[in-house]
Design a protein around this nucleic acid. Structure first.
Lengths: 340, 340
DNA sequence: AGGGGTTACTTAAACGTTTAAGTAGTTTTA
DNA sequence: TAAAACTACTTAAACGTTTAAGTAACCCCT
């Protein structure tokens, strides 16, 4: 592998000059520039990013850690999100280092390692939590990051989030407009910040329509299809089960759907169902699943762009971005069918 | 951030000595070692991998590129596989850089960049193709990698693969044993090497049972649910449609299932169905999908272990590993139901 | 004509490690 | 007892860049 010295020798200049033409960082005559470029071409020279990093104090790497909380293999979230991260980062000549963690302890260690080893220049954090160690740590360490998800407390950091409040409120309103009066809510994992907003959206919709807030209609869910299946079971065991259910995510909605079917009931006739996320699975199940769409690719792209601005000391025009989810009506909610 | 010099100063030794104790690479007295370790502890010193890499000529990074061919957002393959890569690599103090590519040209560029920039020490290649540029390039460049998938031609490299031949043969035999005589095959993308083996397994099963090989029963598929939907449509348009179908993967099997349902037919009564992969979706659809399971996590782990051995010049005990898929019988194939 | 400014370079230090080579001091060996 | 062989270090070069500081040549003023 040729180094900058080889190029310098061939072009009959100093290494500094080579560096100057390569980075456009110094005055070089046209003739010299051409000679250097020719030498680069001839040798097939490429600068070593390692050496560059050593000098420049940056790695051109972004970190993304798959959390134990959200790492459900069946959740296509990561595919889209990671693809977006990698794509967008590539546009800035950055790469993304993806790491997985098994539990909270190893997660903590992973972040610590990555920042102390200076393996990455910045982090992308997904799915903020109520008491989020990761956020606290990175802020304390003064390490740059952008999150997908809002803070639950007074921490301040740049993020992109989806407006779960408005989304769920809109979805529940849709169900109310269809005539439903008893609407259940299957919640996400309690530690997730977004659970809170969705719950508030649910409550707001009921209140605005003067419907009673029946606490037995709100059940703890989690993340997976199984969680949804179990939660729906509880709802169906009620003396007066709901006629419609808003689920914390699509996976749980599908679980709920199976629970309803397995009791010989029908969706949407006996129970209408709306999910959240719009994962591809929504169109694979029968009936197809109505849902609130959040565009993970778009989110990933925005997050990286913000992080890039942060790393390059550019003015962050928007440091807190809230995106609106869109209600997608398919078969599971009953009512008017809008084909997609 | 403290450097090795700070540690050396505090411990009253040279930087070389510090390096020796940290790497156990030189003779150091117990007293000195203790002093150095204390200094390290006190300063919270961590060696810079960048500097280390510059000296040592390795990055402690592994590359994995998401291909345009196999990057279907709904395919949970990547989640499991990437998780396996990251987990296993972490055990060796390596990280995985995941990159995505939009098309063949950008894919080529990505590999070239990664090796010429020496961003990674080795690659993991998934889904080998018939005329695989990636493989040809890496072999020509003498760059270390391990593949998930076999070569189609005479190239020699270490790989882990799943025995699609035996798997499909076994699955088709199962269908034959159930009494099926007209069995369709929905194939994977033609460029994929594994398509070939699965096709051969299909043909072998028919031949061993003296069943005719009807070419109209073999239809080109692809990768996605939509591909499966379309392919199944063609099969159902036949004068004499098949009573059972083997699909190239689960996604296409689910697409086929929807196609069958949408024509008012039933699975498995009118058409029995078997997929390949055992993605989580298989248990979400109704009827649940019979399939051939390949354990992506296991595969990812093996691939990384082999690559590690390769990078550390260890003896590679097994350089070509073939894993058997396991036939998982659920509802879509009819016949005896084994609950999972 | 001498000082100041510009242009187009070069020199050399620096980034944070590793490691070959050197150097005392102590112990073993013949 | 002197040479040889350890042991426990230190010195300094090297890895491949970037960049501050230096320098030489030229042009422009007044």
């Amino acid at each position: 592998m040729p180094t900058i010295k080889d190029v310098a020798r061939l072009a009959n200049v100093s290494t500094a000059t080579v560096s100057y033409v390569l980075n456009n960082s110094g005055p070089v005559s046209e003739a010299t520039r051409a000679r250097v470029l020719a030498a680069v071409e001839e040798l097939g020279y490429r600068p070593s990013i390692i050496a560059r990093s050593l000098k420049g104090k940056h790695t051109h790497m972004l970190g993304f850690v798959l959390s134990p909380y959200a790492r459900q293999p069946q959740d296509p979230f990561f595919n889209e999100f990671i693809a977006a991260l990698a794509d967008t980062a590539a546009g800035f000549n950055y790469h993304v280092a993806v790491t997985t963690t098994a539990d909270l302890a190893s997660e903590r260690k992973t972040y610590k390692d990555m920042v102390e080893d200076r393996r990455v220049d910045g982090f992308i954090i997904a799915d903020t939590r109520l008491d989020d160690e990761r956020l606290a740590y990175l802020i304390a360490a003064g390490f740059p990051f952008v999150a997908f998800g809002r803070p639950a407390n007074e921490l301040i950091f740049p993020y992109v989030d989806v407006d779960g409040y408005t989304g769920v409120k809109q979805a529940v309103q849709y169900l109310i407009d269809l005539g439903h009066r008893r609407i259940g809510l299957i919640e996400l994992s309690p530690t997730l910040v977004c659970r809170m907003h969705r719950r508030q959206g649910y409550e707001a919709a009921l209140q605005e329509n003067d419907l009673p807030l029946d606490s037995e209609l709100i059940v703890a869910g989690g993340l997976t299809e199984e969680d949804g299946y179990r939660a729906m079971g509880k709802l169906l065991d009620l003396v007066q089960p709901p006629t419609a259910v808003m689920a914390g995510n699509d996976l749980m909605a599908v679980g709920a759907m199976n629970a309803i079917h397995d009791r010989g009931l029908s969706v949407p006739d006996d129970v209408a169902l709306i999910g959240f996320d719009d994962i591809p699975l929504t169109t694979y199940v029968r009936p197809t699943l109505s849902t609130l769409r959040q565009d993970f690719y778009d989110i990933g792209e925005r997050v990286v762009r913000m992080l890039m601005a942060l790393l390059h000391d550019e003015e962050l025009t928007e440091t807190q971005v809230i995106l609106e989810p869109t209600l997608i009506i398919r078969e599971s909610s009953g009512g008017a069918l809008i084909k997609d």
